[in-house]
Structures are given as structure tokens and as C-alpha cells.
């Protein structure tokens, strides 16, 4: 070897980049190849999984027995419904009779359903003070609760805010075949709400003492953590039509039984054109009566099976061709401007 050449080589600084799999982007990688077989198998797999789930969900939903009775229109016979409901002297008792079509297995949930009530309105949903509901030394934090934060003489309202002020105040008494049935109103609120969001040492104070009364009054000897009607109502609904749990019936109701419901129709839904209904429903592993999950799974599963069959028909019957056929490459195709 030429000594001058080697000397020159050693003197020169080498700027060549170092080799490694990472810097040269040669790390092993998974590159899935979507062959027709893989695509058809995937679609079939999804279909086979989804269709049974959909059928099971739909079947469970169909087993639910649900009674819905809208009563707000029939319980008020006068033309001036708003005046009727706002008059404290009128008798608002209403009796409804229902026939049970199928056997209802206990426990039976009792809901009240309100339509066109916007609990998600920004002013309404912000009108509450979570600190006041939780801590005894925060009773004065009523700024967010306007206009139902303080009484006219400045004393704080507990619980404050529009949500609590507009607490639902209809009541239901249910008899089966002329025999009174006990409605269990315990444990209708979330356990986490009762233990974490509402204080056990806070009692209602100055509630519904103003000139306008929006809803139910509260027993001031019961702490907020045990006022389950209030707790259920203050978990605001996201949509204008919603149901909230009222109570439970712990005994079975047989088919063809006669239900008699005595309703105290106190709540005003007539001003804004809303609706009220009583709902009795059984439950299953899927929850209440809801066909959406079942229909969704069946739709997707059916679509996947349809696509799988379509691909099979298209690739192996209508227009078969080999995977990776080089005759489809642009330079192998016969075009008018480039005859082969």
C-alpha cells in the first residue's frame, strides 16, 4: 500500500454517517397485506361475532315488560291548565287505572318521565353550588345559585340553585287489585352521590320560602345525603326527554292484574308544553328496554357478512384474477399511444 495514501486517509476526518438499523430505517416492521382471503375472513369473523351478540341483546330487550302511562293531559280537565296547576287550593288528585299485560317479575322500577324539560340549559345546569351541598362551612357559597341563592333578607338557601328549587313534586300511590302496594323509595340514588357529593351533616334551610315555589318542599330534619328524591333530581339529564327513578315495587305483579295509581298532579309542565308520564318497568342484564344495542350489532354484523359474500362472488365468480398479476402494471398494459 502507498504510505502517502494511507497517511492521507488517516489525517482526513470522516463525515460518513454511522450505520445502524434505526438511523437507516431498516428496523423490522409488520406490513399487513390485504389479500382477498384475509379481507373475506375478517368480514366473516366480525359478522359471526356480532350477529349472536345482537340477537342476544334484542332478545333480552324484548323480555322487558314496560308500562308507560301519560297522565298530564287527562288529569286536568279545565282549559286553563296553567292556572289550575298553579292554584294551591285546587284538588290535584288524579286516579289512573292500568291493566298489566304480562307477568312482571320483581323488582319493578317506577320512573317518572318528563318531556321537553331542558335540564341541560346552560343557566339551569350551572345554577348550583356543589361545595354548599357537601361541606357545612360552605353554606354561604351561593353566588352561582342566583336567583335562588339567598332569601330576601340575605340568608342562604340550602340547597340553593334552580335545580333544587325546581324539584319534581308529583307523588304516586299504587294499588294492585284494590290492595295497596308498598313503594320502596330507599336506595334510588347512586351510592357515590350519597356518600361523596351530599353531606350527611347538612340540613335544608330557607328552602322554598320565597314568593315563588318551584317544586317540592324538603323535610328539614333529614340531612341532604338522605334526601334521595333531591339527589336523583339533581343529577341533571343530558336530553330534554328523560326518566328518573321514583321507587321500586318489591313484589311480583301477575298478568291481567288491575293497577290503580293515585297521582298528586302538582308539577307544572303546562307552561312550556312538556309532558309527564308514569313508567313501570322490569329489568334484565341489559338494563331497561332498549333495542338500540341489538339493532346496531345486527346491522353491522349483517353488513359484514354481506360484504364477505360479495367479495367471494366478485373475486372467484364474476371477475377472477391472480394476486400480483404483472399484466396490470402500467408498462405491461397495451395502450393506444404505446402499442406492445
Amino acid at each position: 500500500m502507498d504510505p502517502l495514501e494511507s497517511e492521507g486517509g488517516s489525517q482526513k476526518s470522516n463525515n460518513k454517517p454511522k450505520y445502524s438499523k434505526f438511523t437507516q430505517q431498516e428496523l423490522p416492521a409488520c406490513k399487513p397485506l390485504l389479500t382477498p382471503g384475509i379481507v373475506v375472513a375478517t368480514f366473516l369473523l366480525i359478522g359471526i361475532i356480532f350477529v349472536p351478540i345482537g340477537l342476544a341483546s334484542l332478545s333480552a330487550s324484548q323480555e322487558i315488560v314496560e308500562l308507560v302511562d301519560r297522565y298530564d293531559t287527562n288529569c286536568v280537565s279545565t282549559l286553563d291548565k296553567v292556572g289550575f296547576i298553579q292554584n294551591t287550593d285546587t284538588d290535584k288528585t288524579c286516579t289512573r287505572t292500568l291493566t298489566v299485560p304480562k307477568h312482571m317479575k320483581s323488582p319493578i322500577q317506577i320512573y317518572y318521565q318528563i318531556g321537553d324539560f331542558y335540564q341541560n340549559h346552560r343557566r339551569y345546569v350551572k345554577s348550583r353550588s356543589d361545595k354548599q351541598l357537601r361541606y357545612k362551612n360552605a353554606v354561604h357559597l351561593t353566588k352561582d345559585c342566583d336567583p335562588e341563592g339567598n332569601t330576601v333578607d340575605g340568608a342562604p338557601i340550602i340547597p340553593c340553585g334552580l335545580i333544587a328549587w325546581s324539584l319534581f313534586n308529583d307523588t304516586y300511590t299504587i294499588s294492585v287489585n284494590k290492595k295497596a302496594i308498598e313503594v320502596n323509595k330507599k336506595d334510588i340514588a347512586w351510592k357515590s352521590d350519597k356518600t361523596d357529593k351530599f353531606g350527611s351533616d347538612i340540613y335544608p334551610s330557607n328552602f322554598q320560602k320565597g314568593s315563588l315555589i318551584g317544586g317540592a318542599k324538603l323535610n328539614e330534619s333529614i340531612p341532604l345525603s338522605e334526601q334521595e328524591d333531591l339527589i336523583v333530581w339533581m343529577r341533571t339529564a343530558a336530553l330534554p326527554t328523560f326518566r328518573k327513578l321514583y321507587g321500586r315495587i318489591e313484589t311480583d305483579i301477575m298478568a291481567n292484574d288491575q293497577l290503580t295509581v293515585v297521582i298528586q298532579n302538582n308539577y307544572n309542565t303546562y307552561s312550556f308544553g312538556g309532558s309527564k308520564a308514569l313508567v313501570l318497568s322490569t329489568t334484565s342484564w341489559i338494563g331497561g328496554k332498549n333495542n338500540f344495542i341489538g339493532v346496531a350489532y345486527l346491522t353491522i354484523g349483517g353488513l359484514c357478512i354481506f360484504l364477505a359474500v360479495g367479495f367471494v362472488v366478485l373475486l372467484y365468480m364474476v371477475k377472477p384474477r391472480t394476486l400480483g398479476d404483472p399484466s396490470y402494471l402500467s408498462w405491461n398494459r397495451d395502450t393506444p399511444d404505446r402499442p406492445n
Binding site: R123, Y124, D146, P147, L212, G214, S271
Partner: peptide
């Protein structure tokens, strides 16, 4: 003068509502 959605207290409201 009569409130429609009474639960929002439109009779006693800030400029936002």
C-alpha cells in the same frame, strides 16, 4: 310577562339570558 320555561326564572335574569 308570563314565564314559559319557568324553571329558568326568565323573570329574574342576567344579560346573558
Amino acid at each position: 310577562g308570563r314565564p314559559k320555561r319557568w324553571y329558568l326564572r326568565p323573570d329574574d335574569s342576567t344579560i346573558y339570558f
